[in-house]
Amino acid sequence: MFHYTIETDKSVDEVIEALTTNLYKEHFGILWKFNIQEKLQEKGLEFEEPYIILEVCNPFEAKRVLSEHAVAGYFLPCKIAVYVEKGTTKIGMPRPTNLIGMVEMDAYDQLLEIAQDVEKRLINCLDRSI
Rank of each mutant, 00 (worst) to 15 (best):
T88C: 00
F75V: 09
G44R: 00
L23C: 02
P59M: 06
K39H: 15
D117S: 14
I16K: 01
E68F: 08
V65G: 01
I36S: 02
M102T: 13
L54M: 15
N124R: 08
E119G: 04
G87N: 10
V56P: 08
E38F: 08
L54V: 12
K79Q: 11
Y83V: 01
A70Q: 13
E104F: 08
A115K: 03
E48Y: 13
T97H: 14
Y51P: 02
H69D: 09
D13R: 02
P77L: 11
Y83T: 01
Y74T: 05
Q110Y: 02
V65R: 04
Q110T: 06
N124V: 10
K10Q: 11
H69E: 08
I130G: 04
V65P: 04
Y4A: 00
I36Y: 05
D109C: 06
N35Q: 13
L122T: 03
R121L: 14
E49C: 14
G44P: 00
F75P: 04
A107M: 14
T8D: 12
F2T: 05
C57Y: 04
K90L: 11
N22W: 11
M105F: 13
S67Y: 15
F47G: 09
K43H: 10
L99C: 10
D9H: 15
L76Y: 11
T97I: 14
V65C: 07
F2P: 03
E17P: 11
